Structures are given as C-alpha cells and as structure tokens.
Lab assay of single mutants.
Amino acid sequence: TFELKGKVGKVVKIAEDHYLVEVEGDKWIAYSDEKLSLGDRVMVVDVDGLKLKVKRIP
C-alpha cells in the first residue's frame, strides 16, 4: 500500500464520511481535508492502513 503514495486516481463515490477512489484499477476508501466531487482527479498523499489520504489535483 505504501507504493500508492504519489499515485493519481479519481473519486468514484461520495459517502457520508469518506470517499471511494479508484487508483490503478482498484477502489480504496479515502479521506481528504478538502471537499471533493465525483470525477475529481486526486493524488494519494498518505496511506493509513487500508485508507488513503488524498488531495485534489488539477
């Protein structure tokens, strides 16, 4: 999972307290300090167990 840091993915689902992002064909639970929208491109900035911390990228 640490090899996911720096990888780019996209938001595929928005849940009440987390996001579902697809990175390299796999779906992961993710969270972010900013509000994300469906389809946003994101970069993995940290890995916390099986959850990814992501940030939006242009």
Rank of each mutant, 00 (worst) to 15 (best):
T1P: 15
T1Y: 15
T1R: 11
F2V: 15
F2T: 15
F2D: 15
F2L: 15
L4M: 14
L4F: 01
L4A: 02
K5L: 15
K5M: 15
G6R: 00
K7A: 07
K7D: 02
V8I: 10
V8D: 13
V8N: 06
G9L: 02
K10L: 13
K10A: 14
K10R: 13
K10P: 14
V11M: 09
V11W: 01
V11L: 11
V12P: 00
V12M: 13
V12F: 13
V12L: 11
K13Q: 09
K13Y: 10
K13R: 09
K13W: 12
A15F: 09
A15S: 08
A15I: 11
E16C: 07
E16S: 13
E16P: 05
E16F: 14
E16I: 10
D17G: 08
D17L: 12
D17T: 08
D17M: 11
H18Q: 12
H18C: 08
H18M: 12
Y19F: 08
Y19H: 08
L20W: 14
L20D: 08
L20P: 01
V21Q: 00
V21D: 00
E22W: 08
E22L: 08
E22D: 08
E22R: 06
E22N: 05
E22M: 04
V23D: 01
E24L: 04
E24Q: 03
G25T: 08
G25F: 11
D26E: 09
D26N: 13
D26Q: 15
D26I: 07
I29G: 06
I29N: 08
I29W: 09
A30I: 01
Y31D: 06
Y31M: 08
S32I: 14
S32F: 03
S32E: 03
D33I: 14
D33K: 10
E34K: 10
E34C: 10
E34P: 07
E34S: 08
K35A: 06
K35S: 08
L36P: 05
L36S: 03
L36Y: 13
S37P: 09
S37A: 09
S37R: 08
S37Y: 14
S37H: 06
L38I: 12
L38K: 07
G39D: 14
D40V: 09
D40G: 09
R41D: 14
R41W: 15
V42I: 13
V42M: 10
V42E: 00
V42W: 01
V42N: 01
V42T: 08
M43G: 03
M43D: 06
M43E: 15
M43C: 11
M43T: 12
V44F: 14
V44C: 04
V45L: 06
V45C: 07
V45R: 03
V45D: 14
V45H: 07
V45P: 00
D46Q: 03
D46F: 03
D46M: 03
D46Y: 03
V47A: 04
V47S: 02
V47G: 04
V47M: 05
D48G: 04
L50F: 15
L50P: 04
L50Y: 12
K51P: 02
K51C: 06
K51M: 12
K51E: 04
L52E: 00
L52C: 03
L52W: 01
K53T: 10
K53S: 09
K53A: 04
V54M: 03
K55C: 15
K55W: 11
K55L: 15
K55R: 12
R56Q: 05
R56I: 05
I57N: 04
I57C: 12
P58L: 06
P58K: 05
P58H: 11
